[in-house]
Amino acid sequence: MATSSKDNIHTISVYVANKPGVLVRCAQVFARRAYNIDALVVSPGLNPKYSRMTITASGDPAILDQIIKQTAKLIDVLHVFEHTSTDAVDREYALMKVKVKSPASKAAIKKLIKNRAHVLDDSEGALILGQSGTTEECDVLEAQLNKYGIIEMVRSGKLVMARGKEPT
């Protein structure tokens, strides 16, 4: 995940025509300017002719303006917006596979995650937990579960939606 400072992390929503190669074209704009893509979610839009890409990227904010313009210029891109928590809501989903060493530690884990995550799988020696929340909430739980030993983690990356009637 992100290695850069929090100030330099940006959430960008790209609305694209669902055509072959559009993902690579967008990714190339970021790569060419040495911008790291930390997370990327692509899903069909309300109208399946279009797709939504939510990109979490880190790098110099001065370069981002240029990257947004160069992405918007791509033929298959309808629009590009950078979103912040003031103009949009965001959530992500995290799956965490945590080591279970004893019945006592299982109970402790379950207590720890109460109201924050669900147990999706309870197998011998490991629990799979699912959490939906803000990136920060997922980060916090991840840190807390670390002491039990996280075997694997899969995170969806940020999903973002503009507040009010504004388009995302």
């Binding site: 072959p20 190669g21 690579v24 074209r25 033929i75």
Partner: peptide, 16 residues
């Protein structure tokens, strides 16, 4: 060639 030229074209197609 669709992939190779992607950074140097205005646009490109692979017709299916």
């Amino acid at each position: 060639i669709f992939g190779i030229t992607m950074p140097v074209v205005k646009h490109s197609y692979l017709v299916k």
